[in-house]
């Protein structure tokens, strides 16, 4: 389990990194925390000819509060997100989910940008950022662009990133007042990727009617599965058990696409998604009512 030979660059400026990427194109890979890329290289599943290590580029690790949300730098370690008061205040869904990602050693190295760019359908950050309607700033030598999370995750380990682009930061909008959130997942062992999971955010109006809702699933499709129709079904409703059940039913029968593997069959994953979705909506509802 040793990687195939590769060239290694450790640029100290963003410009240098971008020029290396533009020079080497598909042969190059960005190295961030290395928690996904290095194991794949050791298994020789990934054999990039060139590694562009971005860890020496200054000022890419930050969590800053801004008007309407929080800006998170690509090199922000999971551990920083897990312990950041700014994250706790402005994006509590992310903050409180971080401990569910792997274990402390991995969280000390793994990065915000790395997890998003890797786009594992079982990873939490892609789902959370989709649920929170985040957007990402992608930069290349030719310029930069902002892409919304919903447009960023395209499929299994596939994103809108071009080979010469680096994801520099994300912007995560803050939830409006009377909002609630929940992340529910089932993991075999505490640090495992989830067998199935779902994130829910809800916003109520003053009379308690659901004004806005987003349900996004993980591990039951090849990318974060936004259950748009089920989310819409909740809007304008009082969140009665029947309404919750109906949305759950719609989401988990029609808007997810679970697969079979050695850990769970598609049927069991669907069952889990259903159980968890119901629980997530209920918990988000409670929180939106200020009960938790």
């Amino acid at each position: 389990m040793k990687p195939a030979p590769f060239a290694y660059y450790a640029p100290t400026t963003l410009d240098e990194a971008l020029s290396l990427l533009s020079e080497h194109g598909y042969d190059a890979k960005v190295l961030a925390g290395g928690q996904s890329l290095v194991p794949m290289m050791n298994f020789r599943i990934a054999q990039p000819a060139v590694l562009v290590d971005i860890n020496n580029i200054p000022d890419l690790a930050y969590i800053n509060a801004e008007e309407g949300g929080v800006r998170v730098g690509a090199l922000t370690r999971h551990h920083q997100s897990e312990t950041s008061p700014v994250m706790a205040r402005h994006a509590p869904l992310i903050y409180s989910t971080m401990p569910k990602i792997a274990y402390p050693q991995v969280r000390t190295r793994g990065t915000f940008g790395g997890s998003l760019s890797h786009a594992d359908p079982s990873a939490e950050l892609p789902t959370l950022t989709t649920t929170l309607d985040a957007k990402f700033r992608l930069v290349s030598q030719c310029g930069e662009r902002w892409v919304s999370a919903r447009e960023f995750f395209l499929g299994l380990y596939t994103t809108a990133l071009e080979p010469d682009e680096i994801l520099i930061e994300g912007f995560v909008p803050e939830l409006p007042p009377r909002s609630g959130w929940s992340l529910q997942e089932v993991n075999r062992r505490k640090h495992d990727f989830a067998l199935a999971g779902v994130a829910a955010v809800l916003t109520l109006d003053e009379s308690g009617i659901c004004q806005d809702a987003r349900l996004v699933f993980l591990s039951v499709g090849d990318h974060p599965m936004y259950a748009e129709r089920a989310s819409n079904l909740l809007k304008g409703q009082a969140l009665t058990p029947e309404a919750i059940r109906a949305a759950t039913e719609l989401a988990t029968t029609e808007e997810i696409d679970p697969g079979d593997d050695i850990h769970a069959t598609a049927d069991f994953r669907r069952h889990l998604a259903k159980t968890l979705c119901q629980r997530a909506i209920e918990q988000a509802h409670q929180r939106a009512q200020g009960k938790q």
């Binding site: 298994f43 075999r188 062992r189 505490k190 640090h191 495992d192 050695i262 850990h263």
Partner: peptide, 24 residues
């Protein structure tokens, strides 16, 4: 250990072989 019908081991790593750890 999950072997398929060709006696291929499907979980030859600690990602997929769920070794019990302190958290369990």
């Amino acid at each position: 250990l999950h072997f398929d019908e060709n006696a291929q081991l499907l979980n030859a790593s600690f990602m997929d072989y769920l070794l019990v750890g302190s958290t369990e």
